[in-house]
Amino acid sequence: MSDLGDLYQQVILDHNRSPRNFGKLADANRQAEGYNPLCGDHFTVYLKVENGVIQDVGFQGSGCAISKASSSLMSAFLKGKTQEEAEKLFQTFHEMVMGKLSEPERLESLGKLVALSGVCDYPARVKCASLAWHAMIAALKGESREVSTE
């Protein structure tokens, strides 16, 4: 049985208390909303993408500690990554929170995001962790619609 501490790690609590890159990004050229109607988590992810590289990331909204920390960690981690890298990271991240990461060595590529690996023991919370990521992918693809985890 996993301990609650595996889910609510210090780094997650820290990002929940003081989220990074929180707020609307003034010069964003891509944005998308993520909404989880089940629990009411609602975030907008802003991206500034130039020449296929994510120059800046911001996010706004409200949600639980897991969704907020995940958004915050993601925003910090994606800066400077190419679109292709971001998509690959999303894949790896998603496999991690689903508990389906086939090659554990790929965890390294996720850096601090590994703090969210405990989510895989809480199936009801996987959507919280991946909400901002779905929005980020939608923004990258230029889909201005709202993405839902449902």
Binding site: L4, C39, G40, G63, C64, A65, K68, R125, C128
Partner: peptide
């Protein structure tokens, strides 16, 4: 300062089943 969803997960670990959401 605590989202209901986090309350639900934590109290569940104490064996307490409550509903969180809308």
């Amino acid at each position: 300062g605590v989202h209901p969803h986090d309350i639900g997960t934590i109290v569940d670990r104490e064996g307490v089943a409550i509903r969180t959401g809308h």
